[in-house]
Amino acid sequence: MMRMVRSTLALLLAAAVLYGMQHTRPLYSDITSPIVASGGMNKRVEARAFALSLDSARVARVLNVETFGKSKTYTSSGVWVVVEGEAEAKFETLGLTSGEWLSRSGVRHVLTDRVPATIGMMPGDVYQPGLPRRVLLMFEVPEDAVAGGTVVVAPTKLLPLDDEIRIATNVSGKDIEPAITIRRTEERPPWTVLPQR
């Protein structure tokens, strides 16, 4: 009799454990999600393979791009967010190909592909260990996605368990400039954001 009770209890326990495991099992996307390092503006945030600091985040209704004397105006039904900072590879040469603007509501906006890559934006650059270089990120987002937005940068979105840096910006969403000009230069960094602040 006792043996039967013991077997039944063991069976119930096993069923309870399996039920618990089934309902607490993380999704594959959770298991392989990026390893995140977070920080704020004007601070060097360190991930395993690279470091990033952002020192400027500006919002404008119109974006002008001047490349070698030619000027082009980009309008939008939303606004333009222009972010500048500095990135550095820590141990080996790498590219930072993924940049996103994560709104407070959780919507992700990838880097704009409307502006020509000749400006030297982040995805086209290679970062060498020990040689920090300026980064320029431009996003086209709805106006209500600006306040409390976070910049998310990663070497790639394709590799599981890769590094990701999240920097919370101090953009309020109220301080929107009428226009910002990005001027291509021959110096380093190869751009200037005007009007200068």
């Binding site: 820590k90 141990f91 080996e92 040469t93 290679v126 060498q128 260990p129 020990g130």
Partner: peptide, 9 residues
């Protein structure tokens, strides 16, 4: 110090 550089393009 173990840092590694790839050739520049």
């Amino acid at each position: 110090s173990g840092r590694e550089w790839r050739p520049t393009l």
